[in-house]
Design a protein around this nucleic acid. Structure first.
Ligand SMILES: [Zn+2]
Ligand SMILES: [Zn+2]
Length: 172
DNA sequence: CGAAACGTTAGA
DNA sequence: TCTAACGTTTCG
C-alpha cells in the first residue's frame, strides 16, 4: 500500500568532492499536523493535493518522476534520474539546517538500543570473566555474553526506493 | 583486521 | 548527576 509523506525541505547536498545530489526531507502527514508546521493545516487529503503547500517545489525543483533513495541519513535522489534539467544551478549549495531538517537527517545516527528479546539480551548477570567485564573501567562495553545479537550486526544501511510524483512521495 | 581505549549519550 | 553501554578512534 502507499504511504504518503509531507515534503519539508529540498536542498542540495553539501557532500565535498562528490557529484551533487538533492537532499529531500519529509515526514509523515501525522507528524506534520502534530507539529503544526506552517502552511500545513487541515486534513491530510488537502495537504497532499495542493502544490502551494510545498513552496520549494515551485522553486525549480523538477516535478517529473524520479527515484529517491531512502537512508537513515536522509532521502537522496538517485543520480541520472532527472534527465538533465540543469539541476546543478537551481539552488544554493548550503541552506541553514533548521531543527526540522536536523532531526530528519540525524535519525540515522542515533544510538541503537538492544532488542531485549535475544538470548544475550535476556541474560541478566555479567559473567565478570570476559574481556568486557574485566575491562569495564576503560572499555565501557557490555558483557560479551549479554551483547545483543542485533547490535552485533553492522549499523545496516536500510535502503529502499521511493517514487516521486507531483506533490508527494509514496513507498512502492 | 580485531581489541582496547576513549568519547559520548540515554536513562534512572 | 550518575551509570550503562553504543559508536568512534587508536592500537597492535
Ligand atoms: Zn562478561
Ligand atoms: Zn538483543
Amino acid at each position: 500500500e502507499k504511504q504518503h509523506l509531507v515534503l519539508l525541505q529540498i536542498r542540495r547536498c553539501g557532500c565535498p568532492g562528490e557529484r551533487s545530489h538533492w537532499l529531500v526531507c519529509c515526514c509523515s502527514v501525522e507528524a506534520a499536523l502534530a507539529d503544526g508546521l506552517e502552511g500545513l493545516t487541515g486534513s491530510a487529503d488537502s495537504l497532499l493535493g495542493n502544490l502551494s503547500d510545498f513552496p520549494l517545489l515551485g522553486n525549480g525543483f523538477p516535478l517529473h518522476p524520479g527515484l529517491f533513495i531512502m537512508t537513515p541519513a536522509g532521502v537522496f535522489l538517485a543520480d541520472g534520474t532527472l534527465g538533465g534539467q540543469g539541476v546543478a544551478e537551481q539552488q544554493e549549495p548550503q541552506m541553514p539546517m533548521d531543527a526540522e531538517l536536523a532531526s530528519v537527517v540525524g535519525n540515522g545516527k542515533k544510538k541503537r538500543k538492544r532488542c531485549g528479546m535475544c538470548t544475550p539480551c535476556r541474560r541478566r548477570v555479567n559473567c565478570e570473566q570476559c574481556s568486557s567485564c574485566r575491562n569495564r573501567k576503560t572499555g565501557h562495553q557490555i558483557c560479551k555474553f549479554r551483547k545483543c545479537e542485533e547490535l552485533k550486526k553492522k549499523p545496516g544501511v536500510e535502503v529502499s526506493v521511493w517514487k516521486f510524483t507531483q506533490t508527494y512521495l509514496y513507498r512502492r
